[in-house]
Amino acid sequence: MRALVAAVSVLALAACSTPEPGGNAPSKAPAPQGLRVEEVAGGFQHGWDLGFLEDGSVLVTERPGTLKLVRNGQVTPVDIDLTDVQARGEGGLMGLVVHPGGERFTLCYNTVRDVRLVTFRLDGTTATKVKDLLTGMPSNSSGRHSGCRPTLAPDGTMYVATGDIAQGRNPQDRTSLGGKVLRIDAETGEGAAGNPFIGSADANERRIFTYGHRNVQGVVFRPDSDQVFSSEHGPSTDDEVNLLKAGGNYGWDPSRGGTKGGYDESVPMTDLERFPDAVPAVWSSGSPTEAICQAAFWNGKLAVTALKGSKLLLFSLDEAGKVQNVSIPDELNDRYGRLRAARTAPDGSLYLTTSNGTDDKLLRLTGDV
C-alpha cells in the first residue's frame, strides 16, 4: 500500500459565488488542519462507487463495466457477468451499495433498454446474480444524466438517486423514475411503506420520495438525525445540495410545464416562479458550477466531491441543516483531478475515488477536519 501524506497547513478558500435565491452564500472557513491523504490503490478506469465488506476490503465499480475488489492494497477483478452493461458517455456501471453482512450487494447500471438495479451475492471473488431489483428506470442512448446512486437508509430502505436522462418532461412527471430520489424496499424494489405517494395506483409514483431533480449524484443520511441530503448537478449554474423532504418538488422543469419541446436548460434549477412551493436548495454553487458528485458525512461535516472542480468541499451545517460555511482542503484541491465517489468507512475514515479515466485512484482520508 502506497501512502501519500499531504501538507498540514493550508489557506482558507471560499467555496462558491453568491447562489440564486434558495441557496445561501457560505462564509469563508479555515481549511482542515492535519488532513492526511493515503493512496490505497490505483489502476482503475473511472472509479464510480465503492462499498465496504465485513473483512475491511473494498468493492469498486468502474464505469466501463468492471468490478474490482481491493484487499490489503491488492486489486483483484471480481468474476461477475456484466455483459448487459452499456457503457456510453456518462452511463455504464455506476452506483454500488453493500447490504448488511456483506454477502450481497446491489449495482446500478445502464443496459441497452434502461437503467436498472441488480442484486448479486459475493463468494470470495465471484459474484452471482440474485435478482433484478428494479428495472425500467429511463436511459438515454448517449448515457447523459443517468444518475444513479443507491444508498441504504438507517431504517433498511434503499434510496436511489436518478438522473432525468436530459428529457424535459421527466423531472415533473411522477409516473417516470427519472429526475427523482426514490425510496424502495431493498428486498422487493417496490415503493417503501410510508412513502409520500404510497397510495398511488401507479407503481413508479409509489417509489418516489422527491421529484423535480436534474441529475442527482448522491444521497446521504446525517448521523443521529432524520435529515437526508442530496448532491446534484446543475446546468451552466447552480449545482445544488438539497435537504430532502418527503414528497418535495425541487423545481427543475426544462419542459416549462410541457409547453417546450427538447430540453431547455435556461430554466432555473429551482423554479420558484413556476413552483412557489418548490424546496429551495440549502447551497447552490452559482457560477461556475463544480459538477459536485457524491456526498458523505465525515467527522461531523458534509463532504462532497467535485468532478469539474477537482476538489473536495466540506460543509459545516447547523442543527437545522443550514450551511454555515464551506472549506476546501488544499490537499485535494486540483491535486488528484476529478473526484467522484465518497463513502465513510466503518473505521471513520473517508474513501474517495478519482475519475480521470486512466490510472484512477482509491484514496483514504484521515485526520482533523
Rank of each mutant, 00 (worst) to 15 (best):
I208E: 03
I208D: 01
F209V: 03
F209H: 07
T210M: 04
Y211L: 09
Y211D: 06
Y211F: 15
G212N: 06
G212F: 02
H213T: 09
N215L: 05
N215K: 03
N215F: 04
V216H: 01
Q217W: 04
Q217G: 05
Q217P: 03
G218H: 03
V220G: 00
V220F: 00
F221Y: 14
R222W: 04
P223D: 12
P223H: 14
D224W: 03
D224H: 13
S225D: 13
S225F: 10
S225H: 12
D226W: 01
D226M: 04
Q227A: 12
V228G: 00
V228A: 01
F229Y: 15
F229Q: 04
S230V: 06
S230P: 07
S231A: 15
H233K: 14
H233L: 12
T237K: 12
T237I: 14
D238K: 05
D239V: 08
D239P: 05
E240F: 04
E240T: 13
E240N: 11
V241R: 00
N242L: 08
L244D: 00
L244V: 00
N249D: 13
N249C: 05
Y250C: 00
Y250E: 02
G251F: 07
G251L: 10
W252G: 00
W252F: 12
D253E: 11
D253T: 09
R256M: 13
G257R: 11
G257I: 13
G257V: 14
G258T: 11
G258Y: 11
T259K: 15
K260M: 12
G261W: 08
G261L: 12
G262T: 13
Y263D: 13
D264W: 13
S266I: 10
P268S: 08
M269A: 07
T270E: 03
D271S: 10
L272E: 06
L272H: 10
L272D: 03
E273K: 11
E273N: 10
R274D: 07
P276W: 09
P276K: 09
V279A: 01
V279Q: 13
V279H: 05
P280M: 08
A281H: 05
A281N: 07
W283V: 03
W283C: 02
S284K: 15
S285K: 11
S285T: 15
G286I: 14
S287H: 14
S287L: 14
P288Q: 14
P288H: 14
T289K: 04
T289C: 08
E290M: 08
E290I: 01
A291R: 04
A291D: 05
I292G: 03
I292S: 04
Q294K: 11
Q294S: 09
A295R: 01
A296G: 06
F297W: 04
W298E: 01
W298K: 01
W298G: 01
W298Y: 13
N299K: 15
G300D: 11
G300C: 11
K301C: 02
K301D: 02
K301Q: 15
L302K: 02
L302G: 02
A303K: 01
A303C: 09
V304M: 06
T305L: 06
A306K: 07
A306H: 09
A306M: 13
K308N: 12
K308D: 10
G309P: 10
S310D: 14
S310R: 15
K311E: 11
K311I: 07
K311H: 14
L312R: 05
L312Y: 08
L312T: 07
L314G: 02
F315Q: 00
S316R: 09
S316L: 08
